[in-house]
Design a binder for these strands. Structure first.
Lengths: 193, 193, 193, 193
DNA sequence: AATGAATGAGGTTTCATTCAT
DNA sequence: CATGAATGAAACCTCATTCAT
């Protein structure tokens, strides 16, 4: 008996590939089912509807980022080191899964407002981890005590996101992970005390 | 007899309103035609297809940003002052036209890959103006000579864009233009020599 | 230029034929469109949705019955004569349009509760005309003053409907209009004073 | 160990409840299985297919009517008394099982032509019992010798059915069994010699 | 130049039935 | 006998675009 991945995971992974290959609006349920090697109807044993597939893709994949951040946030390192890890990790994960990168940076953003709101809810956890780092850095005197925390968060996330999107749109023509130290330095300059 | 705006402009403006009010996916050509006060078929006398409307919306509205930057780039001010103006101007224009802000920050991004690529082509002019400022600043010793120019551009555009998007998604709950000096300071810290 | 029936009527008539030929559950919108000689989408310029087509079929066709009853109710005849006319007319109209008979007696009754309720609302007008006849007959001493009006209505409608349905289910094997005098006599016996 | 009803009966009863509660078109096999406390697949050990369940429901429940009529038809009473019993019994049985009444009067009639034909075959036995009463009544001089037997049957069944359906559609707002004597009188008037 | 009625392709989801365990 | 996960066919409706007037 062949041991299969549980179908839920199987379908999520198929969705990432289909969306990356065909684009958001051409990612029909039947294509995802075919890629996953299951019948169309089987999808609906594991997901409420198509929207549920898309949000689940994002949630499952973001979990990697969020968990690694939670871990690093519990370690005894400086806030600056944590920030550096966050950036490096972000770039590394997406570098290693170009399908995922295309899906999160380009395709999923084409979804309608409902899905976008649910995706943002997932993203919020990630941003809260970032906030934790920033608060800690301010308390430790590493980061500028007068800076606007929300702006700092937007500075960091906006930059990391823009660099990643740029990398995807330019068909990965530069080495994304190699940008991490430089991005870290620019951002640290911006916020350090 | 009332002198009417030329129909081309009329349709562009109608598109912005319809997209802002209904969202990208609910902005049907017939709605735009109705809002513009013309027949559906008339749209196709001025635009090749729907995609052409959307890109034209972006191009026409971006022109405001680009022109003002071209002007300021020809003035005798420091690169830092130019950067500050760029940020302030960006926030001010979108603050003054909340319809436009919603359309550019949220709605148009839901379009498919083809339209996104064409929108990026329009954006490129804006980013080139930004590059001009950065190069000038490096040459004048205002900005760090060792920094990666592309990263600096992504830092600045990514941050400004993220702050604006955040402001739109939070229903303009904070004063966007008031962020300009703080954003400028954070970014300048990042890149100054 | 060929003068066409207005499309609305054209589609209604096509629906009757398609439903009669294929049965309620096999009467797809595309079949109706094809039969009407229009595109699928054209249907939706004239009807809100499929349900709207079905109810409209019933409403338009019942109008024939209701109007003729309204006319006869305004004439100077006895209630018994009006009743006889009603029965004769009912059988004659359905005898002359076997498609319609199949649709109203068998097919439309397979619809779901929502449609059935709306169909019943249309039917109500017909039954009210019948009530008018009965009340008039009681007042004139033609019909039994002690009878239960609602039951009398159910007696008449139930019988006429059952005879018609029987005729349809037996593939029109007997002459429906020929039943009218006998049915009238049975019913009159039941309710006469 | 609790002695269970045989599964066949269990499933029939579950079907009546599910159809009455959810309506014909929302009575999925899986719902019936759940209500019956068995697995979906188990249904198919006792019934050939869904159609078979529905017809069996009707057949099993009609048996009550048919048996009681067979009994009364063997008694030494007048045809008129038998007719009265038939009407009273019909109303009483359905009054006592409102689930069943909804299912037979409203829901099962939404089924397609095939099922309807098979249901009619079951109904035929009932109508034959009614014919026996009528023939006996004619022979005994109780009923009009000149009347059309088929019409008389349709008069009686159509009226009883219409009264019952009306009662179900009006949510049992009147006392159905209380109608029996009045209905009997109306019908007897119609057919008595 | 302007109209707007007509077109027709294309996709999500349900659910009766099967069959390996 | 019993299970229940898996199957896959099938249809309503929308909307960008055309073209006769």
């Amino acid at each position: 008996m062949k041991r299969e991945k549980p179908k839920y995971k199987q379908i999520i992974d198929a969705a990432v590939i289909v969306i990356a290959d065909n684009g958001y609006h051409q990612a029909q349920v039947s294509k995802i089912a075919k890629q996953a090697g299951v019948a169309d109807g089987t999808i609906y044993l594991y997901f409420k509807n198509k929207e549920d597939i898309l949000i689940s893709v994002f949630r499952e994949k973001m979990a990697v980022f969020i968990e690694s951040l939670q871990e690093v946030n519990q370690e005894n390192t400086t806030a600056a080191e944590k920030l550096e890890f966050m950036i490096t990790n972000h770039f590394r994960v997406l570098s290693n899964d170009k399908y995922l990168a295309r899906v999160t940076q380009l395709e999923l953003r084409q979804s309608n407002r409902d899905i976008r709101l649910k995706i943002n809810a997932v993203l919020k956890e990630y941003l809260e981890q970032l906030d934790t780092i920033l608060e800690e850095g301010v308390k430790a005197g590493e980061f500028d005590a007068n800076m606007d925390l929300r702006l700092a968060r937007q500075l960091i996330f906006g930059t990391v996101d823009e660099v990643t999107t740029s990398w995807v749109m330019k068909d990965h023509k530069f080495d994304l992970t190699a940008q991490a130290p430089k991005v870290y330095q620019l951002l640290l300059n911006g916020i350090k005390g």
